[in-house]
Amino acid sequence: MTGLAISTQRLVHIYRTEGHDVAALSGVDLDVAAGEVVGLLGPSGAGKSTLLSLLGGLFRPSAGKIFVGADELSSVSASRLDELRAAHVALMLQGAGRNLLPYLTARDNVAFAQDGARRAGVAVPGVGEVLGHVGLDAEADLPLEQLTPGHQQLAALAVCVATAPGVLLADEPTSQLDHEAADRVLATIGRINRELGTTVVLVTHNPDVAARLPRTVTIRDGKIGGEGRSGEEYAVVSADGFLPLPAHALADLPPGTLLRFHKERDVYQLLVEQAGNEQDRNEEDR
């Protein structure tokens, strides 16, 4: 299986809590190319895990569309959605134990994870091949309780890629690990991406993890709040013209600040007007 592209269009998700409707996502437009690695950043409650769950087909959005490969998740049949989740889209929950059966070894966990794909008629790699991808050959037959936290996380990763899925969705895969184990897990995810072509979307709060990713997307208040590319942060214009400012700019541009765009040749300049004064800001976009 090669990587699958992901696209969301004006994605909205509303849930009800304590008698009130809460918009977890408010019009998210996101495109992830097949084989790309993308990190989702943002404060707690911003909507990152909700977005990950929607991409994994755990529930349907309130509005908008989600495309994974050629499938639009809100319109596919229940049987096709089951097949996608069993074989093509893997969701790794936060905490290794939530992805593993504790009474089985890593080898048996991987074999169990492949059963659904086999029943759907999908060809799967050998168990030994999967364990080799994550570097667990020597620990494959040990009881899970004898594995280190880092090796348990690698076992969870092996379960998630047991079917060579086109998409891997990982929720905080390094949050409970020390620095050395976290490095090993990230390196293994990178190797899976390179060797299998799997598209990877992972949630993280760790700035060190984010710095190692080629692309990051920041979620703020249920919207795309910015993108990072090779260490540079960019604001992203949404389909409805919404332009969120980077968090660090808000200290200089408080609510009520007047902004104006000026185009000179092919360059846009953002002009800021405060108290009747016009100032050129160091922000340009082609």
Rank of each mutant, 00 (worst) to 15 (best):
E172G: 04
Q279S: 04
N193K: 11
R220K: 13
V200C: 11
H133S: 10
T17R: 10
P43D: 09
V76E: 01
M92W: 09
G3E: 10
A182W: 02
L73D: 09
L142N: 08
T17L: 07
R16N: 04
G256Y: 07
I6K: 08
A63T: 09
E264F: 02
D183M: 13
H20R: 14
T174I: 13
H133D: 06
Y234F: 15
A5C: 01
M92N: 03
G150Q: 13
F112Y: 13
L144F: 11
N193H: 03
I192N: 04
N206K: 12
A117Q: 07
E233A: 15
G27D: 05
L250A: 12
S62K: 07
G3N: 03
Q94G: 09
E195S: 14
Q274N: 04
H248L: 00
D240C: 12
D21A: 12
E264C: 09
G226I: 13
Q152L: 15
L142P: 04
D21Q: 05
L41H: 11
V130Q: 01
A33K: 08
P149M: 06
N206F: 00
A23V: 01
A162I: 06
D178E: 04
D137C: 00
S238P: 09
L136N: 01
L147G: 08
P207Y: 07
V209Y: 02
I224P: 02
I6F: 10
L259H: 13
E139M: 14
E129V: 12
H88A: 01
E195Y: 07
T50P: 01
G222W: 15
G197H: 12
V124Q: 01
F59D: 05
G39Y: 00
H248R: 14
L41G: 04
G225I: 10
T105Q: 08
T257E: 15
G128M: 09
G116D: 00
E273A: 11
T198Y: 11
A78R: 15
D137Q: 14
A120H: 11
L177F: 13
L55D: 00
S74P: 00
S230V: 09
L11N: 14
G116F: 02
V122R: 03
